[in-house]
Structure formats: structure tokens, C-alpha cells
Simulated assay, not measured.
Amino acid sequence: MESVDQLCFPKLNASCRKPTLHWTNAVLMNIVLSSVSLITAVLNLLVIISVSHFRQLYTPTNILLLSLAVSDFLVGFLLMPGEIYLRTGCWFLGDNVCSLYNHVSFIITSASVGDMVLISIDRYVAICDPLHYPTRVTVTKAKLCVFLCWLCSVFYSSVILHDDPRHPDEHNSCYGECVLVVSYLAGVADLLFTFIVPISVIVVLYLRVFVVAVSQARARRSHVTAVTLQLSVTLTTKKSELKAARTLGVLIVVFLMCFCPYYSVSLAADESLSSSLASFAVYLFYFNSCLNPVIYALFYPWFRRAVKLIVTLQILQPGSCEANIL
């Protein structure tokens, strides 16, 4: 017979058991995961403030990065604490909050994948069709694409989880549990639309960008004759676009490294293997949200300058939004 102290709800016989972790391991895990969650939220909040405040950063590419930073911030602010709550304790917030948490996690995940696809398309047009990039990709169009991305994510979540709000506790084996089980068709659709298709699009576009970037680099090295001022400006512009492409390429490679295990575990046929690696895969996917602003700090001087102005509270001064940080 189970001890009452081991139950999430001691007065209910159908209550779930509390996780059997040694207190030192539980404390250490909570400290590490909570610290990563806080760092993720703070770093992405700095990205959001930077792009939103400084007018020089109002570019189509940065609008897409802003959307990605919003989803990453929500991962650190909502999903990581929720995951810590799920993995290291009992669920005391009720079935309706559990259903809401599952919907929000689907929306944020889908939006992150959509942002990565939009970033790939942006770099593809910038590198492969630079002459038409200023007219084809504008701030207004970027904002519209971001809006549609989040709107589609909300619609997608409502379709995939359409049964969950009506029967939020249908798959719970005991009280104090928060699980999500989707149908076979919904699982196939999720695999197709949030993994296979986006990853294929991202890889194909960036392979094309890589080929064009290499050919342009070779062309610059072989360019030994005198050039006009207009051509020099064009080459300089292409060089800056290539640098941005490399930076965002690193961003996407890191995303794929963190994202692929998330779905690879779900595809594993061995149930014990899936359960043993599920937590690691989820944490790795969420940890990508912490790595993105670190990549910005390493490769974008404007981000470092913006953070300095934010931390020193210089953004509170009149006219600080017009500061030159590029």
C-alpha cells in the first residue's frame, strides 16, 4: 500500500504518485533549469527591446528576428517553467490550465518553426536576387508575414488539439497528471507540417544560398580590374548581405541541431527509449531559445551596443530611439 506522503493528493485514492527523486538531485535540477529559464527570458527580452526601440533596426530581417525573440521569450517565461513543473512535481493547476498550456506550447513551437522558414526565405531572396530584394522584401511585408505566421500557428494548434479542450482529462491515468495524446492522423500531420516540410524548405534554401555565396566569394577574389563606384557599392552591399547570411546560417544550424532530436525521439519505436530521452529532447529544444540571443551577441555588434544602452538606462533619454548603433 502506498504511503499517503507519496501521493500528489493524499485524500484521493486515484491520485498520482510524486516523482521519486532524491532531494539533492531535485534541488540541483530545479536550480539549473530555473536559471536557464530566467537567462532565456532576460536575453530575449533584450532582443525585443533593442529591435522595438531603435529605429535603425527597423529592417525586414530584424522584424523576423523580433518575432523569433518573442517566441523564444515565451519559451523561457512560460514553457520552461511549465516543463520544470511537469517533470519535477505534481500538476496542481487543473485540467483546463493543462489544456491551455498544451495549446500555448504548440503555438509557440509552430511560430518558432515558421520564423525559421521566413528567415531562410529572406536570406534566399537577399543573396540570390539582391537587385529586387529592397522591393520584394519590405518592413510592411515582413510584419504581415509575421502576423500570418502567428495566426496560422494559433489555427494549427486549434486543429491538432481540437479534442483536448472538450476532454482535457481523457488521457490522464490519475489525478495530478498533465499529459497530451494526439490522434494518429494529427500526429502524422504535425510531423509533416512542423518537421518534414519546414526542415526540407530550410535545408534546400540554405544550400542554394551557400552555393551562391561561394560563387560570389570566388568572383570577388578574381576581380582584379578597376571597377566603378556603383559596382563597388554593389559589392559592399553583397558582402554585408553575405555576412548576415552566415550569421543567420549559424542560427539555423543550431536550431536544426536542437530541433531534430525533439522529433527523432517521438518517432522512436521503442517506448522505453522514447521515455528515457523525452525530457532531454524537450530541454534541448527549449535550450535553443537561450542560444539564439547568444549568437546575436557573438555576431551582431549592433546587439552588443543596444544592450549596453539598455543596461545603462540610456534608452530612457529623449531621442534615444534615433541613436546610431549600426
Rank of each mutant, 00 (worst) to 15 (best):
L21I: 07
L21W: 05
L21S: 05
L21E: 09
L21V: 03
H22T: 14
T24C: 13
N25F: 10
A26S: 13
V27D: 10
V27H: 05
V27T: 12
V27L: 13
L28E: 02
N30C: 10
N30F: 06
I31T: 01
V32R: 12
S34E: 05
S35V: 12
V36G: 11
S37V: 09
I39Q: 11
T40C: 10
A41C: 02
A41K: 04
A41D: 06
A41V: 04
A41M: 06
L43R: 11
L43V: 01
N44T: 11
L45G: 03
L46V: 06
V47E: 03
I48Y: 07
I48H: 01
I48T: 15
I49M: 03
S50A: 15
S50H: 01
V51K: 03
S52N: 12
R55F: 05
R55S: 08
Q56L: 06
Q56P: 00
L57S: 09
T61S: 03
N62Q: 13
I63Q: 07
L64H: 08
L66M: 13
L66F: 14
S67W: 09
S67G: 14
A69Y: 02
A69G: 02
V70N: 06
V70L: 14
D72K: 01
D72H: 11
D72Q: 09
L74G: 04
V75K: 12
V75P: 12
G76F: 10
F77G: 01
F77T: 04
L79V: 06
L79P: 01
L79H: 07
M80G: 00
G82F: 08
G82P: 12
E83I: 15
E83Y: 14
E83K: 11
E83M: 15
I84H: 02
Y85K: 06
L86Q: 06
L86T: 09
R87H: 13
R87P: 08
T88Q: 13
T88C: 11
G89R: 07
G89I: 00
C90I: 11
F92P: 03
F92A: 11
G94V: 05
G94Q: 03
N96M: 01
V97Q: 08
C98G: 03
S99W: 02
S99I: 07
L100R: 08
Y101T: 00
Y101R: 09
Y101Q: 08
V104I: 13
S105I: 03
I107N: 05
I108F: 10
S112K: 15
S112I: 01
D115R: 07
L118G: 01
L118T: 08
L118V: 05
I119L: 14
S120V: 05
S120Y: 02
S120G: 14
I121E: 06
I121G: 01
D122K: 01
Y124E: 09
V125I: 13
V125A: 04
A126F: 07
C128Q: 07
C128L: 06
D129Q: 05
P130E: 12
L131K: 15
H132T: 12
P134Q: 13
P134N: 15
P134K: 12
R136C: 09
V137M: 15
V137P: 00
V137K: 01
T138I: 08
V139R: 15
T140N: 07
A142W: 05
A142R: 08
K143H: 10
K143F: 15
C145W: 14
C145E: 08
